[in-house]
Amino acid sequence: MIIGDTIEQGINWLTDNFSGLFDGINESMTSMIGLIESFWVWLPFYITIALFAGLAFWKAGIKNGILTLLGLVFIYLMGFWEETMQTFSLVLGSTIIALATGIPLGIWSAKNKTANSIIRPILDFMQTMPAFVYLIPAVLFFGLGTVPGTFATIIFAMPPVVRLTSLGIAQVPEDIVEATKAFGATPMQLLRKVELPLAMPTILTGVNQTIMMSLSMVVIASMIGAKGLGEIVLQGISQLRIGLGFESGLAVVLLAMILDRITQNLGKKSKKK
């Protein structure tokens, strides 16, 4: 097929000509993820559990606080603590990068019609292309390991935050934007003081979605050597160990629920009921 061939040639050309760039990215991402990972693995489990439960209690109420506490204790008791922390570090690392690129892209596409008409189809593509497909170029660029996993995760997880940032800013009422301009706001002041604060709930929904999607992708990324819970799931599949597969899958679900409950409530004022 022509398309397949072209893509293949393109990817090969990229790997041939930009290997230095990819190596650089590879190194910096390895050290970043490594730093995050070593911190969470180093931190004693009871402190981590206390931190998470405390945050959930503070932001999302007593019910979610208890859920977080019990969930993490359960993961620890199943013996997946280190893998869970590795997975969490990958999620954290790729989310940070996805947000750092995705939010500016979202703002840009809200402000600029041309940008929007270019970014939108790319997002459609990124979201609907089967997640496994990203694994192949990731391996070609970065080899096996954590970095290609993170790379594939970023691509897969970025669209929601781009879309929802763009939506949030587009939804700021026209009369408020007009009033802000009428009082002599610079475009930067308009963005910082008005558009971003008003779009914040929508942007945070995007952040939440990005985290959830990167969590689901991190598991798939273990197929190309990303560490963490995905490895155990994969082990369960390849060795047909239903029990192990189910247990590690449950750990993923619990981690997802905890991250979801906490991030969903990040934007709200703390509630302690």
């Binding site: 009369d175 007009e178 802000t180 009428a182 009082f183 003081k193």
Partner: peptide
Amino acid sequence: IRRKELAMVFQHFGLLPHRTVLSNVAFG
């Protein structure tokens, strides 16, 4: 000139809902 000489009042107010009265009045 928008900051110093011309101020505008809008039909649908155009206020910042997440801010207090004081900080809205001080916005300009």
